[in-house]
Amino acid sequence: MQSPDLFLPSAYLPVLLMLLIGFLFGLGGILFGNLVRPKHYYSLKLTPYECGNDPSGLPWQRITIRFFPIAILFAVFDVEVGLLYAWCIGFSELNSLGFYSMLLFLVILFIGFIYDFKKGLLDWYKRL
């Protein structure tokens, strides 16, 4: 293994390349379409869709706070999954302390999850 001072992450170059090619592919399609497609715009065509009525007010209204607990729980469990992956990789070299501490970690988080569950934070139709 090389020392980090001289390390180049060349194995990840194809991922970056593929990301760029995917982006350029879509862009190329749009730019090519720009040459051939018709462009007859009038103001009625550019109004946002609202089931036939004239749109009322700006679209960016206050959204429900319901999405916020989902985002927080997602962040919490994402960190948990990340730690879990680190645990999975070193599994065969763990002693019993390392093994049970992770299981206890999962149980602690699951108790917190059940608390939220029981208090109705996950029932979408309940008011917060």
């Binding site: 399609g29 379409g33 051939v36 497609r37 007859h40 065509k45 550019l46 946002p48 679209p59």
Partner: peptide, 12 residues
């Protein structure tokens, strides 16, 4: 799809 009009809505 290529020959369809590409619309940028007014408020976007």
């Amino acid at each position: 799809l290529l020959f369809k009009e590409d619309i940028l809505p007014r408020d976007s």
